[in-house]
């Protein structure tokens, strides 16, 4: 349940208990359409199916019916100019099936901000325009003189 080193189990020894698990787990939007009761996760590379099941049941109190995992290969890209190859990290994906009758819909948690960004841009532009107008107003009485000139 964590990346730390634990003592080997010997017959009669205490059961291994993990107090500070350091595995991460993130819920991701499924790339391909999935049935409504399947949730897709990306997780630490060291996690096993049993780890994922225990993690969700013990920490998040989510009932799990079944877990499948696979390791997705990172994409390889060739640099356009120099021609060398770079590769993204591999990532372990987990497909978790919820018990019968439970469904999960991925929420729209990152809504499009283009309208908001546009509003802010317009606001800044208007302020700049206003500032320029006041600058012109200030220098009205001094024709043919550069704006930076002061007596």
């Amino acid at each position: 349940m964590s990346t730390r080193l634990y003592p080997l189990y010997q017959k009669g020894g205490p059961q291994l208990r993990i107090f500070l698990p350091n595995f991460w787990l993130k819920l991701i939007r499924p790339v391909h359409e999935q049935p409504p009761n399947i949730v897709q996760f990306a997780c630490s590379m060291e996690m096993t199916k049993h780890d994922i099941k225990n993690y969700l049941e013990k920490i998040y109190d989510v009932k799990v019916a079944h877990v499948r995992t696979r390791i997705a290969l990172g994409k390889t890209k060739r640099d356009i100019v120099k021609g060398y190859i770079t590769k993204d990290d591999d990532v372990k994906l987990a497909y978790v099936t919820l018990p019968k009758g439970e469904t999960f819909v991925f929420p729209d948690c990152a809504p499009d901000q283009s309208q908001q960004a546009k509003d802010e841009h317009d606001k800044a532009l208007n302020e700049t325009k206003k500032g320029y107008q006041t600058f012109l107003e200030k220098n009205k009485q001094r024709p043919n003189m550069p704006g930076w000139f002061r007596v």
Binding site: L20, N22, W24, I59
Partner: peptide, 27 residues
């Protein structure tokens, strides 16, 4: 400390999820 660890762990998972989603949506 034991309780705090799980709070921090959940917070980290939440932030990683949100970051991933934002990257996917180019936000």
């Amino acid at each position: 400390l034991h309780k705090l660890w799980y709070i921090l762990l959940k917070e980290k998972n939440m932030l990683l999820t949100m970051e991933h989603e934002c990257n996917e949506k180019m936000i």
